[in-house]
Nucleic acid binder design. Structure first.
Length: 876
RNA sequence: GGGCGCAUAGCUCAGCGGGAGAGCACCCGCCUUACAAGCGGGGGGUCACUGGUUCGAUCCCAGUUGCGCCCACCA
């Protein structure tokens, strides 16, 4: 047997101080290459690509949350023997980053146009270097076990090549095309936006009804919330079956303020029951009107420029759309009661998701991805079970989205991003250039000035980061990724597009291997301690660094994991992080205690040589390990964290460690046996906890075992043979006895450590008999001396405890307690008895339930008898 | 306008057909040589409302009220 000398050799400080522990450990992990993955390995692959953070700024708590989950998954798989890869990187975040840099420039009174495209883009790269470095630093502090050698950026050469390649393929397949349509135009960002980049809110506006045609005889009344767009009307539409207006169809009416005459057309899109049943048609500034225009060959008249200013017609020219709106209404009124009605109107208004500006629908020539076949494949992959979405309830949303997707506008009028690889020739030639093609040169040739939607490159992330379009070993090994962990908020922005492009790019593979990932695990959003959305403007956003400084990375990670119920939002507050920090410290001190007492890791003695508490804690340990494994398979981070928390604190620390003090003090074989069990339990539970709280566990585990690192230790396997029902029952008895005595003492006003004498009388070999020393120690009861005269007695299970409460017993307190317990027991009995009197219950309830109720009745009866006796003894 | 989800202890949330749970907060007592970032004990809930199904409902169904989210081109 090894001598317990380690503890003296490697003492632990009395408290866990993350600031002193974390950083050196992380550096060592990286130096030793633990997080690197070998694509040539025979081990099964486990790859998760990071949802690339925007280089825009620093990580927020949501990132910390996501990283905590991913890191836990990857670390566990690594311990299980997988070739585990967490691939890091960042996203250039086109519009977001450009905005940030433009804002910086604005502080100096400059616009990007002052710099020019080339200089501006250079500026953004500088920003990227600075901001990106900050993000990487935060990831190190969090303990993210990423393969740094594989770090990628969506704008680096390889990924840009992938973007160009896929664009070229899509172009050649007719899946990307250029067309003039209504797009969402942000007048502040000066770019087109895709539909999902627009956020709708119910805004207060005004619905204005306007008379068109001859004021005297006018029967044409149309309504609008955007009066200024009337300047661009090119028709009025009615429903084809609307008899009220059938006579007008084919005629022309005068458009006020413009001197133009516009036709009345019949179109099925018009809802005859809404308003007057007549609609103004502005093909250049409304998607529906554009459709109507197409159907009737109407001209499209742009009346707002890219700044949202009126381009047409004298008095309004140059006015912002929001100035033009009332101005037009006023002019109509002056013109002679052309405004039939004005009323407040709450309606859905689209805003730029980046800057909040009201989006202007606007006719524009843009590049589009034809989404039909791609989206169908994305839907089928989930339908066919090739990709599994967690939690499953989200699938409904998934299908309704992919099955109804509109074509995706992918061109952006920005400078920061992947430039569209299309050249236009002097004679109207259009050439799409692949990564290995020659760029057309010569007079008149120029490249499309626009860049691609930032999500276009993100969509390639699962394979572009692994070397695609080249046929690399990494791609072969790690594609499809095993899991994708991300927030439900970007299911459509990102997950759907990765599915579409992954399936398209890898269409040469068998269907099951073309998918970008096998499982999508969606998490919720981090919220504040009251469940409110975190936002800077609301002032409740937390900088994770603050918590990292105060409580350490493990505490932050554990808090977040512990709150992570599948797919639901996670509320967190500083108090909770503190509680997690306390847990880490508890673990620290339990290990410290064990080491101070010579705990070490060795082969466990056979069960027959172990005490009931030993067998109990091993039983609980293995049950916990099994539960943790099951929870991991289901991404139940809250449950598995809770299981480990409960095991460590409530079972191991509160009971096993306390019970262990007796054999440790006894010395000899009992002490050595206990040291081995302590060592074994800690060894195992530290490994189980490592994926969640990597730093403390590394420090404690290496100190305990003397081994190199828990990062590369084996994941514990639950051993069913160590689950021991008899031991659990035995310890359960001890716990009940101890708790009852403590309760009695507390009721009697005895100080916790105040020694009183007592005699324990139980059946030979029962828990009181075999563990009397432990029980006395935990209840501060001394052996009775000569002439022992108990002043009180209490029966707990099969054990009678006679106590000499030094001094007089507080009869009132004791009576109150007993009466209360008695009432509870009687209530219990009544409930059980009522059920057992019910014939239908007996006939229909499952046997197990009936048995349980019978047992409950029996124990309630015994309890009542006991309590009544006690009450009688108390003179009640 | 559609679709989805949620209402359980003061707060944040688990549980989800047969004994109401956790963390934090609260009250009482303890500086017990692992830990005061701790230890022991304790109080606190007609499980939103109304009906239904069932021997039995916090749990299933319907409706009501309140809250949240997603989608949508209704002037």
């Amino acid at each position: 047997m090894a001598e317990p000398t380690r503890s003296e050799a490697r003492p632990l400080p009395p408290a866990f101080v993350p600031a002193e522990v974390d950083a050196p450990l992380y550096e060592r992990w990286v130096e030793r290459g633990y997080f690197e993955a070998d694509e040539k390995s025979d081990r099964p692959p486990f790859c998760i690509v990071i949802p690339p953070p925007n280089v825009t700024g620093s990580l927020h708590v949501g990132h910390a949350f996501e990283h905590a989950l991913i890191d836990a998954l990857v670390r566990r798989r690594r311990m299980q023997g997988y070739e585990a890869l967490w691939l890091p990187g960042m996203d250039h975040a086109g519009i977001a980053t450009q905005n940030v840099v433009e804002r910086e420039l604005a502080k100096q009174g400059l616009s990007r146009h002052d710099l020019g495209r080339e200089a501006f883009v250079k500026k953004v790269w500088e920003w990227k270097a600075e901001s990106g470095g900050q993000i990487l630093g935060q990831m190190r502090r969090l303990g993210d076990g990423v393969a740094w050698s594989r770090e990628r950026f969506t704008m680096d050469d390889g990924l840009s090549r992938a973007v160009q390649e896929i664009f070229k393929r899509l172009y050649d397949d007719g899946l990307v095309y250029r067309a003039e349509r209504i797009i969402n135009w942000c007048v502040r960002c000066h770019t087109a936006l895709s539909d999902i980049e627009v956020e709708h809110t119910d805004d207060e506006g005004e619905l204005v009804s306007i008379r068109y045609g001859d004021p005297a005889t006018s029967e044409v009344v149309v309504a609008t919330t955007r009066a200024e767009t009337m300047l661009g009307d090119t028709a009025v539409a009615v429903h084809p079956d609307d008899d009220r207006y059938a006579h007008l169809v084919g005629t022309e009416v005068e458009l006020p303020l413009t001197g133009r005459r516009i036709p009345v057309v019949a179109d099925p899109h018009v809802d005859p029951t809404f308003g007057t049943g007549m609609v103004k048609v502005t093909p250049a500034h409304d998607p529906n009107d554009f459709e109507i225009g197409q159907r009737h060959g109407l001209p499209s008249l742009l009346v707002l420029d890219e700044q949202g200013r009126v381009t047409a017609h004298g008095p309004f020219q140059g006015l912002d759309r929001f100035e033009a709106r009332p101005a037009v209404v006023a002019a109509l009124r002056e013109e002679g009661r052309l405004v039939a009605e004005r009323r407040p109107y709450v309606h859905s208004v689209g805003h730029c998701s980046r800057c909040g500006t009201v989006v202007e629908p606007r006719l524009s020539l843009q590049w589009w991805v034809r989404v039909g076949p791609l989206a169908k494949a994305a839907g089928d992959a989930v339908r066919g079970g090739r990709v599994v979405i967690h939690p499953a309830e989200i699938e409904g949303r998934w299908f309704s989205w992919v099955d109804n997707m509109h074509d995706w506008c992918v061109s952006r009028q920005l400078w920061w991003g992947h430039r569209i690889p299309v050249w236009y020739g002097p004679d109207g030639e259009v050439v799409c250039v692949g990564p290995d093609d020659d760029v057309p040169t010569g007079p008149g040739w120029h490249q499309d000035p626009d860049v691609l939607d930032t999500w276009f490159s993100s969509a390639l992330w699962p394979f572009s980061t692994l070397g695609w379009p080249d046929d690399t070993p990494a791609l072969a090994k790690f594609y499809p990724n095993q899991v994708l962990v991300t927030g439900y908020d970007i299911l459509f922005f990102w997950v759907a597009r990765m599915m579409m492009f992954g399936l398209y790019a890898r269409a040469d593979q068998p269907p099951a291997d073309a998918v970008p990932f096998r499982t999508v695990a969606l998490h919720g959003m981090v919220r504040d301690e009251h469940g409110k959305k975190m936002s800077k403007s609301f002032g409740n956003a937390v900088d994770p660094i603050e918590w990292l400084d105060r409580f350490g990375a493990d505490a932050v990670r554990f808090t977040l994991a512990r709150g992570a119920n599948p797919g639901t939002d996670v509320p967190v507050g500083a108090d909770w992080v503190q509680a997690a920090r306390n847990f880490c410290n508890k673990l620290w001190n339990a290990t410290r205690f064990a080491l101070l007492n010579g705990a070490h890791v060795g082969s466990l003695p056979p069960a027959a040589d172990l005490s009931a508490p030993d067998r109990w804690i091993l039983s609980r340990l293995n049950a916990t390990a099994a539960a943790v494994d099951a929870f991991y398979e289901d991404f139940q981070f809250a449950k598995l964290s809770e299981a480990l928390f409960h095991f460590v604190w409530d079972e191991f620390c509160d009971w096993y460690v306390e019970l262990a003090k007796t054999p440790l003090a006894a010395g000899g074989a009992a002490a050595e046996r206990t040291r081995l069990v302590l060592g074994h339990v800690l060894d195992t539970v530290l490994r189980l906890l490592h994926p969640l709280i990597p730093f403390v566990t590394e420090k404690l585990w290496t100190t305990l075992t003397g081994e190199e690192s828990v990062v590369i230790a084996n994941w514990p396997r639950a051993d069913d043979s160590l689950v021991d029902a008899a031991a659990e029952t035995a310890v359960d008895e001890i716990q009940r006895l101890v708790t009852e005595v403590r309760r009695f003492r507390s009721d009697q006003g005895l100080k916790p450590r105040q020694r009183v004498t007592a005699r324990l009388i139980g059946p030979a070999g029962g828990s009181a008999d075999t563990h009397e020393i432990e029980i006395r120690s935990l209840t501060w009861l001394d052996e009775p001396a000569e002439g022992f005269a108990p002043t009180a007695s209490l029966q707990v299970g099969s054990v009678l405890v006679e106590i000499d409460v030094s001094g007089s017993i507080d009869l009132d307190a004791e009576r109150r307690r007993t009466e209360k317990d008695l009432a509870a027991a009687r209530n219990e009995l009544a409930q059980a008895a009522a059920k057992l009197d019910n014939e239908q219950f007996l006939a229909k309830a499952p046997d197990a339930v009936v048995t349980r109720i019978r047992e409950r009745r029996t124990s309630a009866e015994a309890e009542i008898a006991r309590l009544e006796a006690r009450l009688a003894a108390l003179g009640g």
